[in-house]
């Protein structure tokens, strides 16, 4: 199992993930991710899509993996990375079903996902994690190694391989139809608005 529950109740997640790992994650679960994450955002996804459509190999093997939607700021000399928080996930919605079809298991971002993504998470056993948007300085300390694996010409939008330790996130959309945004809003909305 690549998902276990720690003594403090937080779930430890270590990719690669299996269907059973994904099934054990529920909307609202706090997680710590340790292992490899791949970064990709708008421009990198734009280059992956024609490869997927042609059935050509991708520069990364996505099976069991997690993609983190982020474009880090440059590292200062002596640092591994600059600021590295999540970007808005919905801009990558159109690419998600195809990537899950190839075996991708998770994405990390912030903000709503469309219905097609939620349906694809159920169908292919995938999970969408939220990281705290705008907490890029704090999140940088969980990145222990970084290398560029594809599309270096895209600068901040290149695909990077990160090795992270105890990277904090929360399950927003699980593979059972659970949705933290809907649950959270319902729990705290005061109806007299």
């Amino acid at each position: 199992m690549s998902v276990t529950t720690a003594a403090d109740g937080i779930k430890e997640v270590a990719p690669p993930l299996s269907d059973a790992d994904v099934e054990s994650l529920k909307a609202g679960d706090r997680v710590r991710i340790t292992g490899v994450l791949y970064t990709a955002r708008d421009a990198a996804h734009g280059r992956l899509l024609p490869l997927i459509e042609k059935g050509a190999p991708l520069p990364i093997d996505v099976r069991g993996q997690i993609i983190y939607y982020t474009g880090p700021s440059p590292a200062r000399p002596g640092s591994i990375v600059g600021s590295i928080g999540p970007t808005t996930a919905s801009r990558m919605d159109t690419y998600v079903p195809a990537l899950l079809g190839l075996g991708l298991k998770g994405t990390i971002g912030k903000g709503y996902r469309g219905q097609a993504v939620k349906d694809a998470l159920r169908q292919h056993k995938g999970v969408y994690f939220g990281a705290i948007g705008g907490a890029g300085a704090v999140l940088s300390q969980f990145v222990k190694k970084l290398s560029i694996v594809a599309y270096e010409d895209l600068g901040t939008e290149a695909i990077r391989r990160l090795e992270v330790e105890a990277f904090p996130a929360i399950v927003v959309n699980d593979c059972h139809g659970g949705d933290l945004y809907q649950d959270g809003m319902k729990a705290y909305a005061r109806e007299d608005t």
Binding site: P72, I132, G134, A137, V138, T156
Partner: peptide
Amino acid sequence: QTLKQNAEMARTQRIPYCQDT
């Protein structure tokens, strides 16, 4: 709490508050 900590780290360690600068 994390955002407060983030602001402190940005100021003291000179890492941008958000990667989208």
